[in-house]
């Protein structure tokens, strides 16, 4: 494969050229989503907000889980850590304006996530497969419990976060746009990773880590970099999510279902792709929030059944399911 010298700008330019269609599609979707609050009802704006958050989280998770095949079962650790560090920083001191407080909180939260990820990366990334997954689950549980039980962290009491939305703007709409920006940035970063040397390195790790290492791919460094990047992105999304809630407790940000949903979305859409997590999040959010919203009693049953059916019918995700059909369809016209 030609690597255009392997420099990041070179590879980026090459990647953009190779994926023009997708980029046009993403930009069109961005415009459409930016206009959405104008014609959606408040309820649907909230659903769309949840969709953006879910899709962005699933992409952030995918950097490590989808590209490198390291399935983390505890990414909610970074949502919680980011949210609480930001919350403690923002409420611990008096800041001249909410925007400044948010900026400092965002920075502190992201830094904390990077620090934690950097500290545990080397030992924990030596574990593979299911052992890595469970170790991450453990990390999330320990962090959540500590946050909950140590009074100084206010996990049980909760933190009221400063309101960021200007008075003239509806908060739901404000956070919608904030999440839209965050999701777009996450997607762009995901794209940059995918087409860069790092992305190819991660794929080689997923396919055969030992061989990759033998061939000179710096697997250890790539894994650690990606882990930290994924953690920071997840943390930032967690911070925005926490502000959109307005009030957080340890129970509302350290949630196992966050960790699981990220995997479900990515798997449902298509593991190792960028569009996959977005499609997966879209389907699941629409299904659970709108279609199943009325069936509160059997909500869990139907979600579970869907999961089983989807894995059975489309084991490679929607993308893996649609791609061959598309290819055949295109072939028919040639």
């Amino acid at each position: 494969m030609m690597m255009a010298g392997g420099t990041l700008p070179g590879m980026l330019a090459q990647g953009i050229a190779a994926h023009r269609g997708w980029i046009a599609l993403a930009l069109a979707a961005l415009v459409l989503l930016a206009l959405a609050p104008l014609y959606l009802s408040p309820f649907h704006v909230r659903v769309a907000q949840l969709f953006l958050l879910s899709a962005a989280l699933a992409i952030a998770w995918s950097l490590l889980g989808g590209f490198a095949g390291y399935w983390s079962f505890g990414h909610t650790a970074f949502i919680g850590l980011g949210a609480f560090v930001a919350g403690l920083v923002e409420t611990g001191w008096t800041w001249p304006s909410p925007a400044l407080a948010f900026a400092v909180g965002l920075l502190a939260g992201a830094l904390a996530c990077a620090l934690l990820a950097g500290l545990i990366a080397y030992p924990i990334l030596r574990l593979r497969g299911i052992y890595f997954a469970i170790a991450m689950l453990g990390v999330a549980q320990v962090l959540g419990e500590l946050n909950n039980s140590i009074d100084a962290f206010k996990g049980t009491m909760g933190i009221v976060l400063p309101q960021l939305a200007p008075r003239a703007v509806e908060p739901a709409t404000f956070y919608y746009y904030l999440l839209l920006v965050a999701a777009a940035v996450t997607l762009a970063i995901g794209f940059a990773v995918k087409v860069s040397r790092l992305g190819y390195g991660l794929l080689s790790i997923r396919e055969d880590e030992d061989t990759a290492r033998m061939l000179g791919v710096p697997t250890e460094r790539y894994k650690i970099q990606t882990f930290v990047l994924s953690a920071v992105l997840t943390g930032v999304l967690g911070i925005i999510y926490a502000h959109s809630l307005g009030f957080i407790t340890a129970g509302s940000v350290y949630r196992t279902d966050f960790s699981l949903n990220m995997i479900v979305y990515a798997l449902l859409g298509g593991m190792g792709t960028l569009i996959g997590p977005v499609i997966g999040a879209g389907i699941m959010v629409v299904l659970t929030q709108i279609v199943l919203g009325r069936l509160l009693d059997t909500h869990m049953f139907i979600t579970g059944a869907l999961l089983v059916i989807l894995v059975m019918l489309a084991p490679r995700g929607i993308v893996g399911f649609v791609k061959p059909i598309l290819a055949r369809w295109r072939g028919g016209f040639r």
Binding site: T303, G304, L307, V308, V311, M312, R316
Partner: peptide, 29 residues
């Protein structure tokens, strides 16, 4: 067995998770 055959071991884990959700809901009902 079907899930393992059709996709991967990790995906079969997702199937068992789905079943757990379903059975839990049944027990609650």
């Amino acid at each position: 067995q079907l899930a393992v055959d059709r996709s991967s071991l990790l995906a079969s884990m997702l199937v068992t998770f789905g079943v757990a959700l379903m059975l839990r809901n049944v027990l609650v009902l």
